[in-house]
Amino acid sequence: MELVCPAGNLPSLKTAIDNGADTVYIGFGNETNARHFMGLNFNESKARQGVEYAHSKNKKVYIAINTYPQPSVWRRWAEAIDSSVRIGADAIILADIGLMEYASKKYPKLNLHLSVQGSSTNYEALEYYYENFGIKRAILPRVLSVAQVKKTISNTPVDIEVFGFGSLCVMVEGRCILSSYVTGRSPNTYGACSPASHVEYIQNETKLETRLGGVVIDSYSDNETAGYPTLCKGRFKSMGSTYYALEEPTSLNALEILPELNSIGVKAIKLEGRQRSPAYIKTITKTWAEAIKQLDRGSYKTKKEWNQALAEVSEGCQTTLGAYHRSWQ
């Protein structure tokens, strides 16, 4: 299985490669990708250095250009594709079909992957991208059970990559505009969810409130640790109760079902977190690379210390199998 790790800058990319990543995925420093954060990501020159470093170690770099361009800014996305080709990226990860057409016509030899932001959750949808653009791989949204992933794999010629670890989207990726409803900026249009520019922490007499775009996402008493106000992970009121109505602050961790994912034919495991520090990248890459090595030796057993290391860098210090297990749904 291929291990695909995140990097938001050159030190993170090198850290991932040095700690066992087969591939690193990156993005440019603008809204052309779904981790458009201040001070994060690559310009063409840094990206080129990243690709050179990876290739010198026989590793690969994929470039995510996975947001949806609107008419007035289309050129910027097309340039990101051109730039990826110039620097020798091993694949680009797209969601928009207009861009897919542009890339497949202009660069017929370029490897195209369908981003998780493309929201494809079944083999009929994948067939569209395969027949029209010749995509080599698709990253599935974090909404399918293992049985559904298996069914999809057995009915498509497209290689399947799934998420193994990281911040968990509760909604189908690409099909959630909660963030722009509250802040005007969403993953689809701007490459950001619950952007920091719209976050406020307000200390009242009794509580610390977290707000996004002025909307109260959560509040914390003195003995609670305040979390970042990602809007699907707040506490809201319904039918008389205040609770995590959509999801708790938690991260996905699929280590426990790694052998199953392997046996059903998953080709690559993706780890989330381009916005995180090199220390985070090191922890998750090392842990997963070791797990995959064990798997290849045929003697896999999830180690307690792996889960512990991953929990420490997780949201709310807790993890879940998410939609892979039916009971989460």
């Binding site: 399918l144 909604m171 999801e247």
Partner: peptide, 15 residues
């Protein structure tokens, strides 16, 4: 009402 998001999870059942 705007259709804002879809999930595998049923939020009504969760409630």
């Amino acid at each position: 009402n705007l259709p804002l998001a879809f999930s595998a999870r049923c939020f009504t059942a969760r409630a």
